[in-house]
């Protein structure tokens, strides 16, 4: 810390990462599309297709049915950038969770602010998804805290495994909800509600929303990499989560909102609670007491 160069580097690296994150996010979306196409035995678009989409959208007429929509679109992207910034600077995990929640709430409000039935239903469904995903995420973060005694991303070092395996499993379970993939892509199910909360966006504002989506995908995958320490393992878990998720997407039909609630509250949430218990000291004390009891009893 005494050397000014190191301070400079430590401040510059996150800034560069943040600046490059739309690029990463776009490529990630491109990889997503290409892999999906290959799994479906198609050729698929080039990796740069998401960027072309953005350029095309920027050239289109941007219609708004309500000026508040613009605010919410920018709010969605803004909160996502903030959350990513906090992550790169090694800030508070809990803050990241709440910033992403705010971003999603912006999306929902944007959907509710227009008088379109599809956007409205999409907004309701987005709220349901939020209610299914957030508790699990918060529980996972709590488990990390119990293990490391810190909420700071920069404070998380070393092997969090194997005590956090249940938390990781729970996160993997709800990943399709956040990535808007089958079986739980109900908010943006185009066969049912056209494009859900995004229905009424067009042109440049839709481009803003799309960039926000890329960042969201990037952030969620980055949070998952926190569970392992080794850089190679980090890359593996990042790619593995994406590929695994795409495989699930291609091997499953979309379920409806009832199944979403049943699944996330009855399976994923208890798993996350188990994760908390496993990583807490109380639990370890209990285990010790139990083994001691068995030992004595035996």
């Amino acid at each position: 810390m005494s050397c000014p160069m190191s301070i400079c580097a430590s401040a510059a690296l996150p800034a560069i990462l943040l600046l490059l994150s739309p690029l990463f996010g776009g490529l990630l979306a491109g990889v997503d599309r290409k892999l999906t196409a290959r799994m479906q035995n198609r050729k698929g678009p080039p990796l740069t297709q998401p960027f072309w989409d953005i350029f095309k959208l920027l050239g289109k007429q941007s219609m708004v049915s309500n000026p508040a929509q613009i605010l919410f679109a920018i709010g969605y992207l803004g909160f996502m950038i903030l959350a990513l910034g906090v992550f790169f600077w090694g800030g508070d995990l809990l803050a990241i969770v709440f910033l992403t929640t705010f971003a999603s709430v912006c999306l929902v409000l944007g959907a509710f602010s227009v008088r379109s039935p599809y956007a409205y239903i999409g907004g309701q469904r987005e709220l349901l998804q939020l209610a299914s995903f957030e508790p699990v995420l918060i529980a996972a973060v709590a488990a990390i805290y119990l293990k490391t005694n810190t909420f700071l991303v920069s404070g998380i070092h070393g092997g969090l495994m194997p005590y956090l395996i249940p938390s990781l499993l729970a996160l993997w379970m709800v990943l399709p909800i956040k990535m808007r993939k089958s079986p739980f892509d109900i908010a943006t199910a185009h066969q049912e509600v056209v494009k859900g909360p995004f229905t009424e966006y067009s042109g440049a504002y839709y481009a803003v929303i799309l960039v926000g989506e890329w960042l969201e995908l990037l952030l969620v995958l980055l949070i998952i990499t926190l569970f392992v320490a080794n850089p190679w393992l980090k890359v593996l878990i990042f790619v593995g989560s994406l590929v695994g998720e795409l495989l699930l997407d291609n091997a499953c039909a979309r379920l409806n909102w009832k199944w979403l609630l049943r699944y996330s509250w009855a399976i994923a949430l208890p798993m996350a609670v188990i994760g908390i218990m496993v990583s807490s000291d109380v639990f370890r004390a209990l285990i010790n007491a139990l083994s001691a009891y068995i030992y004595i009893g035996g």
Binding site: T36, M39, Q40, N41, R42, S182, P183, D185, A189, Q191, D249, N250, A251, C252, A253, R254
Partner: peptide, 11 residues
Amino acid sequence: DALGYENYFMQ
């Protein structure tokens, strides 16, 4: 496709 089962649709 209506079920959101893209892979099956393509196949």
